[in-house]
Write a protein that binds this DNA or RNA. Structure first.
Lengths: 248, 248
DNA sequence: TAAATATCTGCCAGAATTTGCAGCTTTTTA
DNA sequence: TAAAAAGCTGCAAATTCTGGCAGATATTTA
């Protein structure tokens, strides 16, 4: 096998699998690992791939996770837009925290008059910037990681609220296990919020669909709407629609 | 799986869920927790995430609040320093809002362990950035102008607190009329805070000495310390000291 | 065509990296 | 305040990397 051929093969494998191991290549082409290494070094010098200890990575791989932040912001904005469309003048809305909620808070139309409840400091900050929104903060001990109020006091207060809508950014959702999260305290708060509202909308980027975490928030049946960045008829959403969950 | 791949996966998970546990990652990728920890340390060194006990947090999540220019920062810093010196480990401290309080929050020493109560969103944000401070937010309707909780619920909660220290930034102080302010709702909250604490310190730049506003908060006698940017023996402070008000 | 030259490939020894483990310290939690 | 969980350090084994060397192969030149 010619050197050129070999390198072409390597590039093909890299673009196919996003990553390759020197040992695998050596075995597949039947040349020594040294040769593979030299090839990888050359290809890396030419900027065709990224060499790392033990093998190589595709170039697009790197930009994938670097860009995923920005990429996700766009998706979250799309979700936020859909969520905002559910809110009408005069409503009582209760929301959690998280980046998607923050995006939603920023997109609320100037002339919307509504009352918002939240226990999240960043979300509260955004709501308080809005000219026509009345904001009620649900206080208690603030969880450091998420800057959101947790604990019995907060849950008690939430129980006394009768909201029209509840918006929750969620960490994982799955047909079988429903909505799950990884922080016990925050889950308690979310549960209370769901119970206190007549309608609950959960917001999630599609990447979180069909994933699970450790603590269960609620079953699919307790949710009224699922909001993702996808079109309503996207195939990933089929199982959820079939489970009777309305999609926005 | 290559090291870089693993780290990319970790970053992806962090940006997706805002936080991850070492144990979960170790289980998901099938490597030892030591390896995960080392990865997290490397990523944290590169500033890609924030490492915490048991896992890591997303970096982008926390930074929403822009430090805006405040009037008279230097003087307020000087006041804040004096205020900080009053706080000891283990104390329960209740504070209002305002720029002076914010400065104080930023100056709290890293190793101070104390519990803070506040109803101010910006102040809460600052406290929540501190590693060793336990923060309890006193929730209720948020007053737009000052981003602070006001109303019966808040006052009720404050009544149930027994704090060691109360810090208030004040708008006006005068020998005859005591501490005065211009917002009725906020004054109610401040009154409750003063009552709930065994010691009250009021903080004011010297400009506000000998001025009055429309609503009375409390008389000079109810204050335990007055903190200004001036030296203790500054002539402007004489009348206050003579009225029996300790000066810091 | 034969010799000279350049390139490629495999092998090797020592250096470097990575990883899991054991023992010990620190932090968290009940 | 003590048990449990997580973190850190140093070590050892395994893997990978580096540069040099030698033989094989390809290319050029006399």
């Amino acid at each position: 096998m010619l050197k050129k051929e070999r390198q072409a093969y390597i590039l093909h494998q890299v673009s196919l699998h996003n990553s390759v191991l020197s040992a695998d290549l050596s075995h597949a082409i039947n040349v020594s690992e040294d040769t593979i290494r030299r090839d990888l070094n050359e290809l890396a010098d030419d900027g065709k791939l990224i060499k790392v200890h033990g093998g190589a990575l595709s170039k697009s791989f790197n930009s994938f996770y670097l860009r995923s932040d920005v990429y996700n912001v766009d998706n979250k904005k799309r979700i936020a837009e859909k969520a905002v469309s559910m809110i009408k003048d005069g409503m009582f809305v209760i929301t959690g925290g998280g980046t998607t909620i923050i995006e939603m808070a920023r997109l609320l139309p100037e002339d919307l008059k509504a009352t918002f409840f939240t226990g999240s400091i960043p979300a509260a900050y955004e709501y308080s910037q809005h000219p026509n929104i009345e904001l009620i903060f649900i206080g208690d001990k603030i969880a450091k990681k998420s800057q959101i109020a947790v604990g019995g006091e907060a849950i008690n207060r939430i129980r006394h609220i009768k909201a029209d809508l509840c918006f929750l950014g969620i960490n994982a959702i799955d047909i079988q296990h429903g909505v799950t999260d990884n922080d016990w305290d925050i889950v308690q708060v979310k549960k209370a919020m769901i119970e206190s509202a007549s309608q609950t909308a959960v917001m999630s980027i599609s990447e979180k669909l069909n994933t699970t975490q450790r603590v269960r928030v609620c079953g699919i049946s307790e949710i009224d709407v699922l909001i993702t960045e996808l079109e309503q008829d996207a195939p990933q959403l089929h199982p959820f629609r079939e489970a009777g969950l309305p999609i926005l």
